[in-house]
Design a protein around this nucleic acid. Structure first.
Length: 572
RNA sequence: GCACCCAUAGCUCAGCUGGAUAGAGUGUCGCCCUCCGAAGGCGAAGGUCGUAGGUUCGAAUCCUACUGGGUGCGCCA
């Protein structure tokens, strides 16, 4: 059930009827006719802009259209009152029975709010994609949480979602990793080693070096790179991916596809992707202008193999091959997205850190070119996370040397809290994460506030169960009760908006609002005992009353589920 | 120099394919509660939505220019 959609359908039907009887001209486009919750509750339960949107194309005054539409709508039993207001808004007051019916509908369907909007479209969401050179840190954590929640949200809204992680195991940084592990390996053999610039000194490689020792013994000791580099590289990246998988598991992230960059090399797959572009006349040899402003020290003009990304909206063409004939990092990325396109996805989403913002246009250009503009790519950037404890900047580094790891955060506050807080900001806004506040049990901690609402709902359900009472037919009369029901009615609509805009944070804010209405009603019960959900000497009344908290708990559980947060049934 | 992101209450931030008198938390001020329906409640004050234009019946939202902050800018991924 989607009450807003239902009423919108009613409005459209009425408009059609008006066309049929000649009150409106034929051929009008109703696509912009919206039914929305009014900002001011005094304006009613729902409002439609139909009259204003149609006034111009219909060549009529908004208020005249609104009056006629009001007459039609008033004939529907769900509409208690329809009145014209302002420049031509039509405010609808719904019949009291509608809200009870809505709550009943929620109780009848645990999947209330699920949408078929996506129509099964295949969407690939790529996120985290951290280099396999060490444990995940806070920045990765935000990307992981965001990407994962977005994937769940799209799934909930009727898309066929694949969660994907691109392993950057083909570039120079995994050679650095291999050399660093080799040093730890020598160390495990009792040698003194020095970690120079360009190696990873993190403690987390000690056990990898030891593991390598027990795997190959002293076979690599005193040998040159040509002997061990390949073997150590794959050993090390596998170990790092093991680490990263554990980190993701700790956060509750389950990736469907781990895609290896290395698998693109030496297999003709990069060449195939470039050939596709070449066939579209988008590959050429040329020399780029130097960037204006600060000139790199060693700048000199060089001829390179370039991708004509400017044909698809980029600012300059981008090199795909270095002067020594090897690929730039961009080439395998093109091949990777070529692979995604050829796997038949209808839509691609990449989640990057904001420091990769400069990369967006060329990636979009590549996908547009490779798919002949048939597959949209949306790139979502996640901004920095600043850590605090009681308002003070926070540093902690048990394992990694200089940065705070995903594990540090999850160990400190738990996966659910981490995820929720990470979603209390838009992805492109910087996020302050305060460890102390995250665990605080008070109103200004949104996680607690939402969980507490759910716990309260379950608390009354337990009490009612002790009386042998289960949720029955709701009778909603008090404004506080209606406010909660109205908020519940917004849920399916909000899911679709959040999914369409690729903004899972909207779910978190909605849950906070819903919790807020529920707490307000609960508090009213302090002064007005008749509003309490459990009426101890009146089982029938209790049965009706607890329908609402049951519905609230269903929606909170669904919402938290999308965010990847486990709902709590009690706060102990 | 260029590109992208951001700018909303003292502070931290929401704000729906453009909709009515721009919201929440926190802080400030006032009142109430101290009852385990505990982990507070109610109310008030507080805004030229960075600036200036434009589009529109209607702009925080779309367009242009500017100001301020962040990020990035050819053989690093």
């Amino acid at each position: 059930m989607n009450l807003f959609a239902d009423i919108q359908t009613l409005v459209i039907t009425s408009l059609d009827a008006m066309v049929a009887e000649g009150a409106l001209p034929e051929g009008l486009d109703f696509a912009n006719v919206a039914v929305e919750p009014p900002r001011d509750p005094a304006h009613g339960d729902m409002a439609t802009n139909a009259a204003m949107v149609l006034a111009k194309p219909a060549g009529a005054k908004p208020r005249d259209i609104a009056e006629a539409l009001a007459t039609h709508l008033a004939g529907d039993p769900r509409v208690a009152r329809a009145e014209v207001a302002g420049p031509g808004f039509l405010n609808l007051r719904l019949d009291a029975s509608v809200w009870g019916g809505l709550v009943e509908a929620v109780l009848a369907d645990e999947g209330y709010g699920r949408s078929t909007m996506g129509q099964g479209a295949r969407v690939n969401v790529e996120y985290v994609s951290a280099n396999p050179t060490g444990p995940l840190h806070v920045g990765h954590t935000r990307g992981a949480v965001f990407g994962d929640a977005l994937a769940s949200l799209l799934d909930y809204a009727g898309h066929d979602v694949t969660r994907e992680y691109y392993i950057n195991d083909g570039g120079a940084q995994v050679d650095v990793l291999a050399r660093s592990v080799y040093l730890r390996y020598l160390e495990a053999h009792g040698q003194e080693v020095a970690f120079e610039d360009g190696t990873y000194p993190g403690d987390y490689l000690i056990e990898v070096g030891e593991a390598l020792k027990s795997e190959v013994g002293d076979a690599f000791v005193g040998k040159g790179e040509e002997v061990w580099l390949d073997a150590v590289r794959s050993f090390a990246t596998e170990a790092m991916m093991g680490l990263i998988r554990e980190d993701l598991a700790a956060l509750g992230v389950e990736i469907d596809v781990f895609f290896s960059e290395k698998s693109l090399y030496g297999t003709g797959r990069i060449e195939a992707a470039i050939e596709d572009l070449r066939g579209k006349n988008l590959i050429y040899k040329g020399t780029l202008e130097p960037p204006k402003g600060k000139l790199p020290e060693d700048w000199e003009p060089r001829e390179q193999t370039l991708f004509k990304s400017t044909d698809y909206g980029d600012d300059v063409d981008r090199p795909i091959m270095k002067s020594d004939g090897s690929w730039t990092y961009f080439a395998p990325d093109i091949a990777y997205h070529y692979d995604k396109v050829s796997r038949g996805f209808d839509q691609l989403i990449d989640v990057f850190g904001a420091d990769h913002g400069g990369y967006v246009k060329r990636m979009k250009a590549a996908v547009a070119a490779l798919s002949a503009n048939t597959v949209p790519l949306d790139v979502k950037l996640t901004q920095l996370v600043k850590l605090y404890k009681n308002g003070e900047p926070f540093k902690m580094s048990k394992r990694a040397g200089t940065f705070v790891t995903l594990r540090d955060v999850v160990d400190e506050v738990g996966a659910g809290v981490t995820r929720f807080i990470m979603l209390t900001r838009k992805n492109d806004a910087p996020l302050d994460f305060d460890f102390a506040k995250a665990l605080e049990q008070s109103k200004d901690n949104p996680v607690f506030y939402v969980q507490y609402a759910n716990a309260r709902a379950h608390s009354v359900l337990r009490k009612a169960a002790d009386m042998g009472v289960t949720p029955g037919v709701p009778a909603l009369t008090d404004p506080g009760e209606l406010a909660v029901a109205q908020k519940l009615a917004e849920w399916p609509r909000l899911v679709e908006i959040a999914a369409r805009t690729h903004e899972p944070h909207r779910i978190a804010f909605y849950l906070y609002d819903l919790a807020s209405e529920f707490h307000a009603l609960w508090n009213k019960g302090n002064d007005q005992p008749e509003l309490r959900f459990v009426q101890e000497s009146d089982s029938p009344a209790t049965s009706g009353k607890i329908a609402l908290p049951k519905a609230v708990s269903i929606v909170i559980s669904s919402g938290l589920g999308i965010l990847g947060v486990t709902p709590l049934e009690e706060m102990r």
